[in-house]
Design a protein around this nucleic acid. Structure first.
Length: 559
RNA sequence: UGUCCCAUGGUGUAAUGGUAACACUCCGGUUUUUGGUACCGUCAUUCAAGGUUCGAGUCCUUGUGGGACAACCA
């Protein structure tokens, strides 16, 4: 066995460089820092796999930290949902942390900055401050409160903390450089007054720290060695470092922020705000609608954690803009499901087929394997009789030789059963086929070992015995958007690209053994795709989600 | 009329100055009681122009194209 070494990505290069430059390996520590203001999506999954993957690669701890500094948007239910999603992906965090745990420390450090003359209370309106801030191409100017005395700043900040002021009256700003090329360095806001209860600290605090003031200091408090975030935070790095400079102790690990490109997946949106709009406008039934690319939606759809991890791993990590084709994700999904899903028969678009030379009241119990490749997965019993259902599209009165399925005068094999020959069909007044007639070769039973059963027949169909068929609801999903990149159009809003046919609900005919499936279980409907049992299932009705179709080369030939 | 980031097949990544590699997709083929799976094969001289070098996808310069930055959001 040759030990094929997977090449490093640039993130791993950064870490190994640091290790080579004197960072002790036992100081390595990472974190995944979501804001609990919504559900995690496939984009977060990439970040989770990156950070926790690093933890696994270097065998070092990873914290799950909630960046909960804005009580106006955050809720405890999101904390629970995020924890569930991370666990479902198969990762274990070292410490469960909250930025809100550091409010006191952050406050004390802010006092320190005020005393150093590096922070001040500004009492202007946000409009006035915005006007002074300049633009990316024009420098800002100093505001009138910039040179308040330390005593006055201390008193005002204390008042803010005590709830003496309303929202918007005063804020605390870092005193850096209003002329900096970097807008974020133009005296960024550190604290604002928010009169809202926090999901963890209740009404203890009237002031809340901003992201920039919180993030690096939280990394430092947790002694995170490497703090990875997406590219749009690149301009924040200078501020991250400036804030760290104010408080860092040289004996401790100084966290390093580095940025990677977020992953964009075709035919979907990966933005909490946009996903929320789909929920609000009832385009989908909720955050866990199987069409949603939230982790909870993918889970309900039947995606496996392994498929998501393998996907994240295979697309790697980079710094350039990207649009990863959904095919990549579906490849890894099929790859995993192919290994773990038992095979069954279910007819999605049933039409009755009568085997005219089969005894009227006879029912045979046939054996069907659960896996073509792996006999150890066992067998199940499938009833066979004179009247069965097959897929409507599997029969044509006449067809060219590329059509391997049932046609008049030609033979096909019924999976795990007999070889039949098309004899004709019955049509209604409009010419629609209502019933197909066929004859069977009694010596051709699958597994009988007879010469007839061994015959090479090009086509094999799945089927279900009509009398024993189990009607089930099947939800067929298609892409949520009709274009690969719905949210990059300059003129049109992404909502204009919503696919109106992303859901089709049908009643299908399943083999009776399927009534024993449990919620969440995935099976392969042979020749049709992978399907999982939805939680909407009741004692009376089984509900399936189509997780993904099989690859279908016939669809291309036929088109 | 600023600062910063990015540029390798249709897609995503690799090549760490020395033969452009891997996966997906597409197309073609072999096997198959799933038109599935598995297996095999075809598909790029690296945005452009200069420069450094024995040698450049990689380093330098200048273009070109794309992106980020002006929330009391994260």
């Amino acid at each position: 066995m040759s030990e094929e070494k997977k090449p490093n990505n640039f993130i791993e290069d950064i870490i190994e460089d640091d290790l080579n430059n004197g960072l002790s390996k036992d100081k390595l520590r990472f974190r995944f820092p979501p804001e609990p203001n919504g559900y995690l999506h496939i984009g977060h999954a990439s970040a989770i796999c990156l950070n926790f993957g690093l933890g696994e690669k270097f065998n070092k701890p990873v914290n799950l930290r909630f960046d909960d500094t804005n009580p106006a948007k955050e809720e405890a239910k999101y904390v629970d949902a995020i924890k569930k999603d991370v666990q479902w992906l198969g990762y274990k965090w070292d410490n469960l942390c909250f930025a809100s745990d550091y409010f006191q420390e952050l406050y004390d450090w802010a006092i320190h900055l005020i005393k150093e003359g590096k922070a001040y209370v500004d009492s202007q309106s946000s409009e006035e401050m915005a006007a002074q801030k300049g633009t990316p191409t024009e420098p800002g100017v100093d505001g009138p409160y910039r040179d308040r005395s330390v005593e006055e700043n201390l008193a005002l900040f204390e008042g803010m903390k005590n709830g003496d002021f309303g929202e918007g009256e005063h804020i605390l700003r870092a005193k850096i450089d209003m002329k900096s090329n970097n807008m974020l360095m133009r005296d960024p806001i550190m604290y604002r007054v928010v009169n809202r209860d926090h999901h963890r600290t209740g009404d203890t605090w009237k002031i809340y720290p901003m992201y920039d003031w919180t993030h690096g200091e939280s990394d430092y408090l947790e002694q995170i060695s490497h703090s990875f975030c997406t590219l749009e935070f690149k301009p924040h790095r200078e501020l991250y470092d400036w804030f760290l400079d104010q408080i860092v102790d040289t004996d401790k690990v100084r966290p390093k922020q580095r940025e990677f490109a977020r992953r964009n997946i075709s035919h979907t949106v990966t933005s909490k705000r946009k996903l929320q709009k789909l929920v609000e406008q009832n385009i989908v039934t909720g955050w866990d609608d199987p069409r949603m690319t939230t982790i909870s939606g993918l889970r309900r759809r039947g995606y496996t954690a392994a498929s998501i991890k393998n996907f994240a791993d295979s697309i790697g990590i980079g710094k350039r803009d990207n649009l990863v084709d959904m095919n990549h994700l579906e490849f890894h999904l099929r790859d995993d499901l192919n290994k773990i899903a038992d095979r069954v028969m279910c007819v999605l678009d049933p039409i009755k087929l009568v085997i005219t030379n089969y005894p009227e009241d006879q029912v045979e119990i046939l054996q069907a394997e659960n896996s073509q490749e792996d006999e150890s997965r066992g067998f199940r019993k499938v009833p066979f009789s004179r009247e069965i259902y097959i897929e409507r599209e599997d029969y044509r009165e006449e067809a060219n030789k590329k059509f391997f399925r049932l046609k008049n005068g030609k033979e096909v094999r019924l999976k795990n059963a007999y070889i039949i020959k098309g004899e004709g069909c019955i049509k209604d007044a409009d010419g629609n086929i209502t019933e197909i007639h066929a004859t069977y070769d009694p010596d051709s039973r699958s597994g009988s070992g007879s010469e007839a059963s061994m015959r090479k027949i090009k086509g094999t169909l799945h089927w279900v015995s009509a009398a024993q068929a189990l009607p089930v609801e099947v939800r067929l999903y298609d892409r949520l958007f009709t274009v690969p990149s719905p949210d990059t159009d300059k003129e049109k809003d992404f909502m204009e690209f919503v696919n109106p046919d992303s859901l089709e609900v049908i009643t299908a005919m399943a083999e009776p053994a399927m009534k024993n499936l449990s919620i969440g279980q995935t099976v392969q409907f042979q020749r049709m795709g992978y399907f999982c049992v939805d939680p909407d299932t009741t004692d009376d009705k089984l509900v399936f989600n189509r997780t993904v179709t099989l690859r279908d080369t016939w669809a291309k030939v036929d088109a």
